[in-house]
Simulated assay, not measured.
Amino acid sequence: MKLLLIVGLSLLTNNVVYGDIGQHVLQDKNMPLTKSVAIIGGGASGTSTAFWLSNVFPSDGKIQVVSTIFEQSDYIGGRSTTVPIKDDDSLGTIELGASIFVEANKNLMTAAKKFNLELTQLTGVESARPGLGIWDGKELVFEESGSYWDTIKAVWRYGFTPMKFQRKQKEVVEKFLELYDTDYGFENIAKIVDTLGFNSLFNQSASDYLKKLGVNKRFSNEILQTATRGNYCQDLNTLHGLAV
Score class of each variant (00 low, 15 high):
G8A: 13
G8N: 12
G8Q: 08
S10K: 02
L11M: 09
L11Q: 05
L11K: 04
L12P: 04
L12F: 14
L12W: 13
T13I: 11
T13R: 10
N14V: 11
N14W: 11
N14H: 10
N15G: 07
V16I: 15
V16P: 00
V16E: 12
V16C: 06
V17I: 02
V17H: 00
Y18C: 01
Y18L: 07
Y18R: 02
Y18P: 02
Y18Q: 04
Y18G: 02
I21W: 11
G22V: 00
Q23G: 09
Q23Y: 04
H24F: 11
L26Y: 09
L26D: 07
L26K: 06
L26V: 15
Q27A: 15
Q27S: 15
Q27W: 04
D28Q: 14
K29C: 00
K29Q: 07
N30Q: 12
M31V: 14
P32E: 11
P32I: 05
L33V: 05
T34D: 05
T34H: 11
K35M: 05
K35W: 06
S36E: 07
V37E: 05
V37Y: 00
A38E: 05
I39W: 13
I39R: 01
I40E: 06
I40M: 13
I40K: 05
G41N: 06
G41L: 14
G41H: 08
G41W: 09
G42N: 03
G42Y: 00
A44E: 01
A44W: 14
A44P: 00
S45T: 14
G46I: 15
T47D: 10
S48E: 14
S48F: 02
S48Y: 01
T49Y: 14
T49C: 08
T49F: 12
T49Q: 04
F51C: 13
F51P: 06
W52H: 15
L53Q: 01
L53P: 01
L53I: 01
S54G: 13
S54P: 03
S54N: 15
S54F: 02
S54C: 10
N55S: 07
N55D: 10
N55Y: 10
V56C: 02
V56Y: 05
F57T: 09
F57S: 09
F57Y: 13
P58G: 06
P58L: 03
S59P: 06
D60E: 15
D60H: 09
G61F: 00
K62I: 01
I63L: 09
I63V: 15
I63P: 03
V65Y: 14
V65H: 07
V66C: 08
V66F: 02
T68W: 04
T68H: 15
I69Y: 10
F70H: 05
E71R: 11
Q72V: 10
Q72D: 01
S73T: 11
D74E: 04
D74R: 01
Y75G: 02
Y75I: 13
Y75S: 08
I76S: 06
I76R: 00
G77D: 12
G77C: 14
G77A: 11
G77L: 08
G78F: 10
G78P: 09
R79D: 05
R79Q: 07
S80D: 14
S80H: 11
S80N: 15
T81Y: 10
T81A: 15
T81C: 15
T82F: 03
T82Q: 13
T82W: 01
V83A: 07
V83N: 10
P84Y: 09
I85C: 03
K86Q: 15
K86P: 04
D87W: 02
D87N: 14
